[in-house]
């Protein structure tokens, strides 16, 4: 079974892509495309705040398209986590909250990780893979 989640991105508060990974056979991106998508999303997210007719909008949370869903969670510190998944995938918001938890534990608490820099933490990779594999059975249609 192919995973419902295609890819996961993390962008720092200034819009730099600090983590990218594919989780399925579909929708895989090469380095250039992942960087391009991340910076596009960062800008669109910012523009969407300006578009809002009401006050207190903090940007797009869900983008639904015919071939994919993009779900975004922005922490209050400005770091954005977003996944691209099969259309109609449920539970992506809680998945992102869990990713945030793993980021806190295995990235930020790693004393050798430099804040705002690309994430190269094996433990983080490992626990993410576990999380997404575990979720495979739970999320989806």
């Amino acid at each position: 079974m192919a995973s419902n989640v295609y890819n996961l991105f993390i962008i720092n508060k200034s819009g730099g892509l600090i983590f990218y990974k594919d989780y399925g056979s579909l929708g895989r991106l090469d380095t250039n495309d992942s960087l391009r998508l991340a910076s596009l999303w960062h800008s669109m997210h910012a523009i969407s705040q300006q578009l809002s007719p009401t006050l207190g909008c903090y940007g797009i949370e869900l983008l639904e398209a015919d071939t994919f869903d993009l779900r975004c969670f922005q922490a209050l510190t400005g770091t954005k986590f977003f996944v691209v998944a099969e259309p109609g995938t449920q539970g992506l918001d809680s998945l992102l909250k869990n990713v945030y938890g793993l980021y806190v534990d295995y990235v930020l608490k790693n004393p050798f990780y430099e804040v705002e820099m690309p994430i190269r933490c094996e433990l983080f990779d490992l626990s993410l893979t576990q999380l997404i594999r575990k979720d495979k059975g739970v999320i989806g249609r």
Partner: peptide, 16 residues
Amino acid sequence: GIRLIDDFLSKSNVTR
């Protein structure tokens, strides 16, 4: 502090 804030936010569920 600059690292702990995210731990705080992710675990406390406080809002803006």
